[in-house]
Amino acid sequence: MLKQLLTILQDETIYQVEDIANKLGTSTAMVVAMLGMLTRQGYLGEVEQACTSACKGCALAKQCKVASRTDAHIWVMNAR
């Protein structure tokens, strides 16, 4: 199942989790769980949306936070 997921992600385009779930014939929750696993293994990176670790100590972190409160989870393929 994980291999199928990675095969789908080779297409280098943009997906909604729902699209992937439909392709794999599973639930979105299963896809999110597998994306989490692939992220922990380094296949994917989860995009930080607010100024978090990368912006530690930055005086503008608060302003960034205010302007980027979207609560979507975003992942991108990492080069391996």
Binding site: L9, T13, Y15, Q16, A72, I74, W75, V76, M77, A79
Partner: peptide, 11 residues
Amino acid sequence: GKRTAFIMEIP
């Protein structure tokens, strides 16, 4: 540039 897959979970 090479494109990469991008996945979004929309709330």
